[in-house]
């Protein structure tokens, strides 16, 4: 198990390093450098940038200093908002984005798994057909499209839910619904197909041959095995939900990190783009690492595999 964690950890660090390096190279590859020839930047901002990025040093020194600043969690100043650093924006926006993302993940996972199990147990029945139709629709309708239609239906026409901002549980309903539907659909489909496959396994037949109740067969014997593939895609789904917050925060005017990120893209606030990308990538990659570890803990076979390797 330890070897497994170590291997995953190394992959995680390398991946983060690649993202950081990529951001550095790309930002320096922008024609005319984003830092010194940006129109409309004030003297003060220029000085800040100069100080943070050490633009007068050789490139490799800049790179090393950049690495250092990231390790010390210092993402530098914003160009467009001279009074704020990237850290300020992250501190303001990230908790809100995290809340939106987390609630959506929980909603997506629970409803997706439930829907998948029910569909699998009623295989080829009406409920299965219904659930899978919803699932294909959920996968096909982009979250930002769904968001606009939800606003139009529930906020503009029916006037039962607020259309924007993030101030009460009611305000969370539409953004979470828009963000969670896609991942929920993916989880439901995966749970269903994996459940159907597990139910044909010999050990399920054996459990039936023991005279176990259907409840025990599904929840004790089938579910854990069926959820293994679902765990493996959680990392990818997290990434989808996280990037999804960008547009949803824009649509619902939620003051999260995504809003600042989209603004920074639109007015080319490069330090904010860089900082946010690195921060979010690192966050996701660490999540992916944790998901891998969780998978290792869930599947007893992985432990042994590593024990043998040691």
């Amino acid at each position: 198990m330890l070897g497994y964690i170590l291997k995953r950890f190394v992959i995680m660090v390398v991946t983060i390093l690649i993202i950081v390096t990529l951001t550095f190279i790309l930002m320096h590859a922008i024609p005319g450098s984003p830092f010194n020839e940006e129109r409309g930047t004030s003297e003060a901002v220029q000085a800040n940038l100069q100080a943070h990025y050490h633009l007068d040093e050789p490139l490799y020194v800049q790179y090393l200093l950049y690495l250092k600043s990231i390790v010390t969690f210092d993402f530098g100043p914003s160009i467009k908002q001279p009074t704020s650093t990237v850290n300020d924006l992250l501190g303001r926006g990230f908790p809100i984005s995290l809340e939106l993302g987390l609630v959506s993940v929980i909603v997506a996972v629970i409803s997706g798994i439930l829907l998948g199990i029910i569909a699998a147990l009623r295989h080829n029945g009406l409920i299965d057909y219904f659930a899978m139709t919803i699932a294909v629709l959920g996968i096909s309708i982009p979250n930002f499209i769904l968001a606009t239609q939800l606003i139009q239906t529930f906020a503009v026409q029916l006037k039962i839910l607020p259309a924007a901002t993030w101030s009460s549980p009611q305000h969370m309903v539409l953004p979470v619904l828009a963000l969670a539907t896609g991942p929920m659909a993916i989880i439901a489909r995966l749970t269903r197909s994996s459940m159907l496959e597990v139910l044909t396994q010999d050990y399920i037949k054996m459990a039936r041959a023991k005279g176990l109740s259907p409840y025990k067969i599904v929840f004790k014997h089938a579910l854990k095995n069926a959820l293994m593939p679902v765990v493996t895609i959680l990392g990818t789904l997290l990434a989808g939900i996280l990037t999804g917050t960008f547009v949803l925060e824009k649509i619902f005017a939620i003051p999260g990190m995504g809003k600042y990120f989209v603004e920074s893209i639109n007015n080319r606030d490069y330090p904010v783009i860089m900082g946010t990308t690195v921060f979010y990538s690192a966050f996701l990659i660490i999540m992916l690492f944790l998901v891998d570890i969780a998978y290792g803990l869930l599947d007893p076979r992985i432990k042994l595999h590593k024990k043998e390797a040691e």
């Binding site: 396994q201 054996m206 014997h221 599947d299 007893p300 076979r301």
Partner: peptide, 13 residues
């Protein structure tokens, strides 16, 4: 009942 393949007849988890 006893099944053919003991490698798949037991629940791995």
């Amino acid at each position: 009942m006893i099944f053919q393949d003991p490698m798949t007849a037991l629940n791995p988890t």
